[in-house]
Design a protein around this nucleic acid. Structure first.
Lengths: 234, 234
DNA sequence: TATTCCGATAGTGAC
DNA sequence: GTCACTATCGGAATGAG
């Protein structure tokens, strides 16, 4: 199976046949798989299952879906969004149990995906991962650049002017691809980064800062609680 | 000492002070040094010594020299050319003693050198060397490309129309640098080479062919001589 | 924008 | 066009049977 069509294969497979190393969970309308090359500590893909009257080619990518039956498209994306909400809750539980605190989670599509079959990215906002290796990787998740399309924003297109919907649904590949070549800018502090190694060091530092801040919060909370319990027992 | 001015330092140093790993030989007007990064089996540089009335800056590069006193320039280059003749004889002796046969030797300047102090390249035409690493290296010695200026051709400029001399003496850096970016073409068979690894393999093969041809010649000669000597002793 | 491999290309720093 | 180092950029193959 080619790398480029693996997601379609997953989406067409009975979930019970998928190994646990691939499949995280599933619903009647979607499968949630681990991203094979996670770009953050947590990184999943939610794939719509192929169900009548849709066929696999209707779901090849976001542009195809949006330029088909509009109501059907809205249903598909709304269902993915619902499953993403559930997934985010599960990720947050895992954040708490593994790290003691929660942090941001992004949910969105890529404006110009290269793998076949629609996939909704759900990933934590640390962007700390060995698999983050080049500018395209980073820019494709930068939340302010335009390439990463938040699922709620995409859903809002359905309720906007039809002309706006049509304009957004074009999803011109050249236009989106150009975004990936722009300079590296930290999505947190807007600092310009010279290259990938310095960006990664910076992202790690930003993440370390967030970790320390959260640990300190936890410590203060613990002290407060201790003081309170002391008062009670006095 | 900077890499970029090392040759000037050599040219200003008493030859007896230069280590034998650097200096091959010297004459009243020049020093011959081993190229520190040889691009062929044999690769030397002949450097003009700085002698009154010239100062080091007059000899910084070919363009500077040609655009100064024309007669003086001709003397300097003619002297380098004479020393190159001697050097080629010595290289050919070494070819015979080490390889049993002689092969081509090129003698010329680079149209746009980056190291300070005029240097005449004298190198065998095999172009087989680990130090040949990129397109600039190769194109800078390609005998038909224009970047490598045979010393006899440069000498011919002095006897041409003054307007031709002036035109040639300009040695526009941009013009010459552009030549280095052109496609890789085998100087022997004009075959286009896709990249450096394939060019190097091809040059090695061309050299192996030449070696086999010369070995066969030597063998035939030996057989002839044996037959002759047999005749004599019969 | 799937990765990985190979190679070309570009900028820097050397002293 | 000095080298060596680092990093980016650019194309091609990729699997399965």
């Amino acid at each position: 199976m080619s790398n480029l069509t693996i997601l379609r294969t997953y989406a067409l497979t009975n979930p019970s046949k998928l190994p646990p190393s691939v499949l995280f969970s599933h619903s009647p309308t979607s499968l949630t798989v681990y991203d094979a090359f996670p770009k953050s500590i947590f990184h999943f893909l939610i794939l719509p299952r192929v169900q009548p009257p849709l066929v696999a080619s209707d779901l090849s990518d976001l542009r195809k879906l949006l330029n088909g039956d509009k109501e059907r498209a809205k249903e598909v994306i709304a269902a993915l969004s619902e499953d993403a909400k559930t997934l985010r809750k599960e990720i947050e539980e895992e954040m708490l149990s593994r790290y003691g605190f929660k942090w941001g989670i992004w949910t969105g599509f890529h404006g110009a995906p290269s793998m076949d079959h629609l996939h909704l990215h759900v990933l934590s906002d640390d962007l700390c991962s060995d698999r983050m290796k080049n500018k395209k990787h980073y820019n494709s998740f930068h939340p302010k650049l335009g390439f990463f399309l938040d699922v709620d924003e995409v859903l809002s297109w359905f309720d906007a002017e039809p002309s706006y919907y049509s304009a957004m649904a074009k999803l011109d590949t050249k236009h989106y691809e150009a975004m990936l070549k722009t300079d590296l800018v930290c999505y947190r502090c807007n600092a310009n980064m010279k290259n990938i190694p310095s960006l990664k060091a910076h992202l790690q530092e930003e993440w370390d800062v967030e970790t320390r801040r959260e640990k300190a919060k936890m410590e203060r909370r613990r002290e407060m609680e201790e003081k309170d319990s002391t008062k009670v027992t006095e």
